[in-house]
């Protein structure tokens, strides 16, 4: 099914949900105010559903809004987002019956930063970006240039094994398969791991020296649902509010531990970071550790206990020795 067909159906479904009173709110995407961008649409108004869109730029993981909206919600969710929804259900942050998931099988999203790097142009200097299956055509000054889609998809989309929502009420489109093809990515955990310890330490020191502690990574993350984050505690004060690189690093390491087993690798933390810190190198690594140690992927089963709140006496313990 093409995007515009999916979009048409989504608008109808969303309108019906509001009209029939099955939900109070619709959370989806609408056209953003900047070229190519989309923006979250949170609305109670059925007329607004005509603004809902589906395209390769629907980046936000909208489940982040679920914990703050009071009332039943119809939410548009891609594969990773739907798992975040499930993870929130597992953590009892939301109730399954309060959510209508309008699932979108996700063929991968276009990373505008990659496009900008690829063409040495800013987003607003480009003409069009058109995806056609595994190719993308980008026009500048009327001239089109053709690239394999894998050149411009987000790293996490390239590595995504679960592009189709696992939990949904309405599935918009046919289930899809993971993207194949090997391309260079920004997140290169193997390469990082291969670097000597000291070098790696210096790498992170440098990266975290840039952090300005805007907390966008935390606030955009559906797994970061604490009412009060540990960084805001003053007694004891775990880290300083002052953005010293050491404290920045500790903030991110602890955040990473807190979201272990909840992180669905949606990549939002890295995408929103205004200082371009490669946060996904940490979260993806944790995602892999969780999978390796516990054969667990976040948000796959709404009835499963949240990974780090459950303990089985039979569990292997060699990692905590």
């Amino acid at each position: 099914m093409k995007n515009n067909e999916i979009q048409q159906r989504l608008r109808q479904e969303a309108k019906t949900l509001l009209e029939q009173g099955q939900v109070e709110y619709i959370v989806g995407y609408e056209t953003g105010s900047l070229k190519f961008t989309t923006t979250p649409l949170l609305t109670k108004n059925k007329d607004d559903t005509d603004r809902l869109i589906v395209n390769p730029f629907i980046v936000n993981n909208l489940s982040v809004y679920l914990t703050e909206i009071k009332g039943k919600v119809g939410i548009v969710a891609k594969g990773c987002d739907s798992r975040s929804v499930v993870s929130l259900i597992q953590d009892n942050k939301i109730a399954r019956e309060d959510i209508v998931i309008m699932g979108i099988p996700c063929p991968g999203l276009i990373d505008l930063k990659k496009v900008e790097l690829l063409l040495s142009k800013d987003r607003d200097e480009l003409g069009n970006i058109t995806r056609d299956e595994d190719r993308v055509v980008i026009t500048i000054d009327g001239k089109g240039r053709d690239f394999p889609i894998t050149e411009v998809l987000f790293d996490n989309c390239l590595e995504c094994q679960i592009p189709t929502p696992q939990e949904y009420d309405i599935l918009l489109g046919e289930p899809t398969t993971p993207i194949s093809g090997n391309v260079s990515k920004r997140t290169n955990i193997k390469e990082l791991e291969a670097t000597p310890r000291e070098e790696r330490w210096n790498f992170w020191k440098e990266e975290f020296s840039r952090c300005i502690r805007c907390y966008a990574c935390r606030n955009v993350c559906p797994a970061c649902f604490c009412q009060r984050c540990f960084v805001e505690e003053s007694e004891p004060q775990w880290i300083l509010p002052t953005p010293k690189w050491q404290d920045n690093l500790i903030f991110q390491v602890i955040r990473n531990i807190h979201v272990a087993g909840r992180c669905t690798d949606c990549g939002e933390c890295e995408r929103v970071c205004p200082m371009n810190i490669p946060l996904r190198s940490l979260t993806r690594k944790m995602y892999e550790i969780v999978d390796e140690l516990f054969q667990y992927k976040a948000g796959m089963d709404k009835n499963a206990l949240p990974l780090l709140t459950a303990y089985e006496p039979t569990e292997a313990e060699d990692f905590i020795r």
Binding site: Y215, A216, N219
Partner: peptide, 20 residues
């Protein structure tokens, strides 16, 4: 409604000057 209450806009604003 859609604001996520992060500090990007204020921190990177050239005129915002709140401090701790």
């Amino acid at each position: 409604a859609k604001c996520i209450s992060c500090g990007i806009c204020t921190f990177l604003c050239p005129t915002c000057y709140c401090f701790d």
